[in-house]
Design a protein around this nucleic acid. Structure first.
Lengths: 211, 211
DNA sequence: TAGATTGTTAATCGATTAACAATC
DNA sequence: TAGATTGTTAATCGATTAACAATC
């Protein structure tokens, strides 16, 4: 399940930042870039950036730097940025709607192919081009459309039972925005975007601010 | 600036999860809890949970466990969950609106006291009880209301220039939802909630899924 | 050639885990 | 007393950083 490419998790989290710096370089017509410039974008020293990239292969030229286009293309391939990624959205509240229309996702080829909700008044609505379907159709839709990813934006109380259904329906990856720890069978990956928990950690720093 | 309490960052990130488990215990009438139960919620072994809590002091009783109410009260104090936390919201797009009405924030006493936007058609609107003010009034408002925290939910292109203004106006903590790395003066803390970068890391796993 | 920058090794740093005496 | 569970030490693990030979 871990795939063929092994990467330390902190390294993986920095790759999108390197990639973003490469896009900027392209935009500015820069064709060679240094580990120092890449590291700066990710907030790490040049040595860290070089080490991260060395996990992917040898791309740089000593004394010169990295070819912007070549490295960008490689990161796109490693991260799968250009692969179409079908996902369903569960929960069409304020946050769900915002995610459905988030402009930053299109660049990475995320395709939200349908949304689901229990609220009858929302069924049949559209968010952009995304149709809102009744939750009962979840399993059928996942099977018929071969969807592997779900974005979960329902209230905390409903999240676990829906996660169970998603796992049973064959979803492999849940991007969870509900503020709960989900239990899922092995083989299902959960990535938590827990804004309430994050706020609690911000609170720690905020109340310690001087002045 | 680092405050008096030193905590490893991974530990700090787990404290909200322990706290959440304590709330659940209270709800169920459980008055003693073990490091094993706490660790499970955060996805770590019992030894890790004990070590995390030992940074805060000695709360458990050997052979017994932790007092649910006592530990919850202590976590509330350490994290400052019950302290009122004023914040302003910059950017009243879909994501900004969703954050302004996010139900999970009230429990931790986050008070979004105003929202700002450049779009004239949005000025004067209300999101719940939050008024949308023109961006020109940002500095005045921050000074007059002694605000330390800003939630930044503007398009990537505008984020840096607004971060500059926030820092100059005396904001200490920026919760940044724009997909960019902000440069801020020392003394200003930035916490990034970079959904586009996160999607890129999800992509890495998604395209490697078997079947 | 002189200057710049990579890829990699080794040293450092910090977090996690295992083990267990102390305690209830 | 026997069983359970903490707080803490020491061992392990993994990531970061410094340094530098190799390369352009």
């Amino acid at each position: 399940m871990a795939g063929s490419v092994l990467l330390p998790k902190p390294c993986l989290m920095r790759l999108p930042h390197y990639y973003r710096r490469l896009l900027q370089a392209m935009h500015e017509g820069q064709s060679i870039i240094s580990s120092d410039e890449l590291g700066e974008e990710a907030g790490v020293p040049a040595a860290q950036a070089r080490k991260d990239l060395s996990y992917l292969g040898e791309f740089g030229r000593p004394g010169v730097g990295y070819d912007v286009y070549e490295l960008a293309a490689h990161l796109e391939r490693i991260l799968g940025l250009n692969e179409p990624k079908k996902a369903i959205l569960i929960g069409v509240g304020n946050l769900g709607r915002a995610l459905a229309s988030y402009p930053g996702f299109a660049r990475y080829h995320l395709q939200i192919v349908a949304a689901f909700d229990i609220d009858p008044s929302k069924i049949g609505q559209r968010i952009g081009s995304i149709r809102v379907l009744p939750l009962e159709e979840l399993e059928t839709f996942v099977h018929q459309n071969d969807v592997r990813m779900a974005i979960l934006a329902v209230p905390a109380a409903q999240a676990q039972s829906i996660a169970d259904r998603l796992a049973a329906a064959g979803i492999h990856l849940i991007w969870n925005f509900a503020p709960v720890s989900l239990r899922v069978p092995t083989g299902v990956m959960v990535f938590n975007e827990d804004l309430a928990a994050r706020l609690a950690t911000l609170s720690f720093f905020l109340i310690r601010q001087s002045s």
